[in-house]
Structures are given as structure tokens and as C-alpha cells.
Computed example of a mutant assay.
Amino acid sequence: MTSNTTDESTETTQESTATTEESTATTDATISEKVARVEEIVAQIEDGDVSLERARDLHTEGRELLDELEADLELGDGTVEER
């Protein structure tokens, strides 16, 4: 009986680890996409070929993305991994 319980516990741990890794990969992609969009916004505003209203809308979108990025990065465990 103990062996069966241990096997079930190991399977649960492996499933949890796989889910965490998938979540991290998704978060990484999302962070990369958000950073890329912020860079696009900065380039558009710096180019100067946008109306004042469009620049304001871009600024608002950029600020929201930066807030989301800050929240995403605060969720980390404090370690940096190079991939």
C-alpha cells in the first residue's frame, strides 16, 4: 500500500512540475510579446508621425503594458535563468 501511495505522490509531483514549466513558458512568451509591443509603441511615438490623440492612446497602451510587465515580473521567484 505504501508503494502505491508513493507512486501516486510522485505522479502528482511530476504533473505539477510539468504544469509549472508550461505556465512559465507561456509567461515568458507573453512577457516577450509585451516588451516587443512597448518597443513598437516607443518607436512610433519617437518617429513623430502620429497625431497627438494617437500618441496619447499609444502612451496609455504602453503604460498599461508596463504595469502588466511589472506585475508579471513580481510573480517570479527572484532568480534569473538564461535560456
Rank of each mutant, 00 (worst) to 15 (best):
M1S: 13
M1T: 12
M1W: 14
M1E: 15
T2D: 14
T2L: 14
T2Y: 08
S3V: 09
T6N: 09
T6Q: 15
D7P: 00
D7R: 15
D7A: 13
E8H: 14
S9V: 06
S9N: 09
S9L: 15
T10Q: 12
T12M: 12
T12A: 15
T12V: 10
T13S: 13
T13P: 01
Q14W: 02
S16E: 15
A18D: 09
A18G: 07
A18V: 03
T20W: 07
T20P: 03
E21A: 12
E22P: 03
E22I: 06
S23M: 03
S23P: 03
T24R: 08
T24L: 14
A25K: 10
T26H: 03
T27M: 06
T27F: 00
A29N: 09
I31M: 13
I31P: 03
I31Y: 04
S32F: 05
S32G: 15
S32T: 14
S32P: 01
E33H: 06
E33F: 04
E33G: 15
K34A: 14
K34L: 08
R37V: 07
R37H: 05
V38P: 01
E40M: 08
I41S: 07
V42R: 12
A43C: 03
A43G: 05
E46V: 10
D47C: 01
D47S: 05
G48P: 04
D49H: 08
D49N: 13
V50L: 04
V50H: 02
S51A: 08
E53C: 00
E53N: 11
R54E: 14
R54C: 05
R56G: 10
D57E: 14
L58F: 01
L58V: 05
T60W: 07
T60H: 06
G62W: 01
R63K: 10
R63D: 11
R63L: 09
L65D: 03
L66M: 11
D67N: 13
A71R: 12
A71E: 13
A71C: 02
L73V: 10
L73T: 05
L73C: 03
E74V: 07
G76E: 10
G78H: 02
T79N: 08
V80W: 05
E81V: 14
